[in-house]
């Protein structure tokens, strides 16, 4: 009965709604631009610093525009071997971080989609017990079990390994809950139809469930990739060797020396290299990112 809105979308134009003056709209734009400046400034500043020479950086204030050392600085950081962190090229650090972030994202998605599949589409003894067992891990972040977890890592010989960096972080109640929630919305008739068509659990999973979950997986991937990339406490604990560091940890090591010796221009370059990949992922996959964010937190 409801009449569809007769108003065409006012795309590209600011709505002049009730009580909103043109001045109000301009004020809104002004506040937003100011907000963007605050939000973007630290990143921009670091980018500008990464294109100046060490001498320029050491004599604040820094110019507001990029300098002429872009190529030299980035070349030196990428291929020169940064002395401060034990001669490990930034490339290695980026590789480590990428492996960890991808490993965590993919690993989490795989094990949680499997367990959510088991919990929703099968009936078996202990089902609810296992569900709660997974659910309760929400309440056990790394921070509250630092030492004993570290000891487990030592006992299993996982210090300074990719396995050690990745595996303990891939158990996730959040992702399992998300998939469970989504699976519960899949009508039972679909399972019945699949069974009538002679599809077993595996075919149903592969031919129906996975294709239906595509957008959920994409959304979750973005969130988890960022989660993996920005890990701090865990890599700090389980890596001793500099060549196993993630870029975030390496950066921390670079600046933890006396100011006078720090090669700030290389620190700035490394910072940029550490933040650009995840920013690109978030910006380019924005649609899934926003969706994933709002949905995982339901």
């Amino acid at each position: 009965m409801a009449e569809p809105s007769t108003r065409p979308p006012a795309s590209g134009h600011d709505k002049l709604m009730i009580g909103q003056s043109a001045a109000g709209i301009w004020l809104a734009h002004a506040v937003l631009i100011l907000g963007i400046l605050i939000v973007a400034f630290p990143i921009y500043y670091t980018f500008v610093a990464s294109t100046h020479s060490l001498q320029t950086i050491l004599r604040p204030p820094l110019p507001l525009l990029p300098g002429d050392r872009f190529v030299e600085n980035y070349w030196e950081a990428l291929f020169g071997g940064v002395g401060r962190i034990g001669g490990v090229p930034v490339g290695t650090l980026l590789l480590n971080t990428t492996i960890v972030a991808l490993g965590i994202a993919v690993g989490k998605i795989i094990i949680s989609i499997l367990s959510a599949y088991a919990i929703v589409f099968f009936r078996f003894r202990g089902r609810m017990f296992f569900f709660w067992l997974i659910f309760i891990t929400l309440m056990l972040p790394v921070e509250v079990r630092i030492l004993p977890t570290y000891k487990v890592m030592v006992d299993l010989g996982l210090i300074d390994t990719y396995t050690g960096l990745i595996v303990p972080l891939i158990a996730s109640a959040t992702a399992t809950l998300l998939f469970r929630q989504f699976f519960l919305t899949i009508p039972g008739e679909l399972v019945e139809a699949a069974r009538v068509d002679g599809a077993g659990p595996w075919r149903f999973f592969k031919d129906i469930l996975l294709p239906l979950s595509r957008t959920n997986i994409a959304a979750l991937f973005v969130i988890l990739f960022i989660y993996g990339w920005t890990q701090y406490l865990w890599p700090l604990l389980v890596t001793n060797r500099n060549d196993m560091n993630t870029i975030v940890i390496a950066l921390k090591k670079m600046i933890s020396f006396a100011d006078a010796d720090t090669e700030w221009h290389l620190v700035m370059v490394t910072s940029m290299l550490a933040i650009v990949p995840p920013i690109l992922v978030v910006v380019l996959m924005q649609r899934w990112f926003v969706r994933g964010l709002v949905e995982t937190e339901k």
């Binding site: 108003r7 065409p8 006012a10 795309s11 134009h13």
Partner: peptide, 8 residues
């Protein structure tokens, strides 16, 4: 007339 020219 809506922005965009549609005359409702």
């Amino acid at each position: 007339v809506y922005p965009g020219g549609v005359e409702a």
